[in-house]
């Protein structure tokens, strides 16, 4: 069981240090900033905010090194990413055909006694479609793991050992946001879960998204496309009942009950929780303890207190 704290975005008003203080974290901390890609490790602001040494695990650069040492892994990794991208494109083509009827039926008001059954059927069809997609992704990952056993490969093992040494001297781990696919790929390839089991972990934005059961990417009004949230990947599964939604107020129409309600029903039993500036939620001994006001997207289209937004 992981000791986790999820936070809102940290760029403008960072409050990571407050979370550290609440847990009496002392000493140096490790950081994962692989989601920042080529800016990985540029964590002066983070260091200044925390007032302590921050050691970046540099997963992005480590993987570059691994790929140089193990070109076979590089090629296989790239092939897997190609498969995942192709799968996502196919899923996206069909997603609209599930979203549209669900949206249309939820929009209607009791025009006949059959409506509720059809609404439920449309949402169920959408949920099944998402689930099938997730299973396809899971199979691709399982196939890759079985055939290439990345954690057993010397190039990866060397990096893991180095990181294990670093982490043994750390009193916590901070996982920053950024590119969510880049981040999850590197955390997964290096098997970070096994290395940080005993550390308190603090994650925000894409960092928080990577830790749940599944990764859902979302934007209600992108400049191109329908704005349908997509299941992107399997998450690390460090918690199962919450879907982190960083910058939700900017990305989602939270004042639109139809969109909020459909989102909530679609992804139940996970509760979509907006992670805005100042939000902090602690996951301890298998239960969530909000440290701040935390809201959840409820099936009736409202935003409710996180624990009141339950689907059960």
């Amino acid at each position: 069981m992981f000791d986790l704290t999820l936070l809102g975005p940290q760029r403008w008003k960072p409050d990571l240090v407050t979370a550290f203080d609440r847990l009496s974290i002392r000493g140096s901390v490790a950081a994962i900033t692989a989601g920042w890609q080529e800016r990985e490790g540029e964590n002066e602001e983070l260091q200044q905010h925390l007032g302590r040494q921050v050691i970046d695990l540099k997963l992005h650069r480590r993987l570059e090194q691994v790929f140089v040492e193990d070109p076979e892994l590089f090629n296989e990794h790239r092939a897997r990413q190609d498969r995942l991208r192709a799968l996502q494109r196919l899923y996206r083509y069909r997603l609209d055909f599930f979203m549209e009827p669900a949206r249309e039926l939820l929009r209607r008001k009791k025009e006949s006694e059959a409506l509720a059954a059809h609404q439920q059927a449309a949402v169920e069809a959408l949920r099944r479609f998402d689930q099938e997609h997730l299973e396809s992704i899971r199979r691709i990952h399982a196939d890759f793991e079985a055939r290439h056993q990345p954690h057993q490969r010397p190039a990866i093992q060397r990096q893991r050992e180095e990181m294990q040494n670093i982490l043994s001297q750390m009193s916590g781990l901070a996982i920053a946001g950024g590119h969510v696919a880049v981040l999850i790929n590197r955390i997964r390839l290096f098997g970070i879960a096994d290395l940080v089991r005993d550390l308190p972990i603090f994650a925000w934005s894409a960092g928080a998204m990577a830790l749940g059961q599944r990764i859902v990417v979302f934007h209600d009004s992108p400049p191109q496309g329908a704005g349908n949230a997509e299941v992107l990947d399997v998450g690390l599964g460090w918690f199962s009942d919450l879907l982190p939604l960083p910058h939700a107020s900017r990305r989602l129409h939270l004042d639109d009950p139809l969109r909020v309600g459909l989102f909530a029903q679609r992804f139940a039993p996970e509760i979509g929780v907006p992670l805005e500036m100042g939000t902090s939620l602690r996951f301890e001994k298998g239960a969530w303890h909000p440290w701040s006001d935390a809201l959840g997207l409820a099936p009736d289209g409202q935003l409710k207190d996180f624990r009141g937004a339950t689907h059960r």
Partner: peptide
């Protein structure tokens, strides 16, 4: 411009959460 540029050179809106 938003419609044109985002179609020709789409950003990483869907993938990046900072």
């Amino acid at each position: 411009l938003r419609e044109g540029l985002s179609w020709l050179f789409p950003g990483s809106l869907w993938m990046v959460y900072e």
